[in-house]
């Protein structure tokens, strides 16, 4: 995030960090106790699903707090139109965790924008652990920035008509160089509607991070909300590991087996 400030714990309780091979690579958001919403391009290039970890309840990447939880990934569902009509179009992914998130005041789900959502007069914020300068400086502290929405037609004018598709929306602050940057991908753009926070965008792409005329482009969540709900409601929960034999029961069986072995030798 360029032009942002450190976020306080519990302010963005739906924020997730997607780690690959032990390093933060993307953001995400909690949408259900088993599901994280993120960007498809965070999971492409034949990445090994076993090397992904998801963290929630985190504000400092280097310090786990009292509410920090860590998860392995069970499956990743990439939108079928990802890269089909645009190199980074359909940039949305649902990540199913192996175990359930425990909600608390620091870990909560965000609402998904409904298909008919009208975007006007909104206070919207982007959050992430991406670069904080165009030179690639980073911060371990979660950054937040308020971003004005940019009319879709204006964004088409800035980027070119074929670059901005209906499944995208744009936001950024031209005057103060406030925007999202590398490492923020997959993170949420959220707006407050009558004291309820709704996710309207997923950080997706842009022409660099700090060219004033090129705002950040987000995957438009309302365009994908039916797809999101369909998969959350219809995907089976991950298989849970069978409980291990209790130590007491295990000890009894062990004694019995030993006794039988001794008896058989007599």
């Amino acid at each position: 995030i360029l032009g942002g400030v450190d976020a306080l714990e519990t302010k963005w309780p739906w924020q997730a960090s997607v780690h690959y091979a032990g390093f933060h690579i993307c953001g995400g958001s909690i949408v259900d106790e088993y599901w994280i919403l993120s960007a498809a391009h965070c999971f492409d290039r034949n990445k090994n699903i076993k090397a992904f970890d998801i963290y929630v309840g985190l504000v400092d990447l280097k310090v786990a707090g009292n509410h920090t939880q860590w998860f392995e990934v069970n499956r990743v569902i990439i939108h079928p139109t990802y890269g089909l009509y645009h190199p980074i179009g359909g940039d949305i992914a649902l990540v199913q965790l192996k175990t359930r998130i425990v909600f608390s005041d620091s870990v909560l789900p965000i609402c998904i924008a409904p298909p008919d959502l009208t975007l006007s007069n909104l206070s919207c914020w982007a959050t992430g652990w991406g670069y904080i300068s165009r030179q690639g400086d980073t911060s371990n502290k979660l950054q937040e920035v308020r971003l004005p929405l940019i009319p879709w037609q204006l964004c088409q004018l800035l980027y070119g008509q074929t670059d901005i598709l209906p499944d995208m929306l744009c936001a950024g602050n031209f005057r103060n160089m406030k925007t999202a940057c590398e490492g923020d991908s997959g993170g949420p753009l959220v707006c407050e509607f009558d004291r309820t926070w709704v996710q309207i965008g997923i950080v997706s792409w842009g022409q660099g991070c700090a060219y004033p005329m090129y705002p950040t482009v987000f995957a438009r969540v309302s365009f994908f909300s039916k797809w999101i709900h369909h998969h959350i409601e219809n995907t089976p929960l991950p298989l849970q590991p069978l409980p291990a034999l209790s130590s007491t029961l295990g000890a009894i069986i062990s004694v019995l087996m030993t006794s039988l072995a001794v008896l058989s030798m007599l």
Partner: peptide, 27 residues
Amino acid sequence: TAHRHPASEEVAFSRDVACGQRHVQGK
């Protein structure tokens, strides 16, 4: 509940916890 907070801060969360609701702390 598993929350380790003073009783005044405790909030009950069911599996169907409401989305988009920040924890509001009373003053």
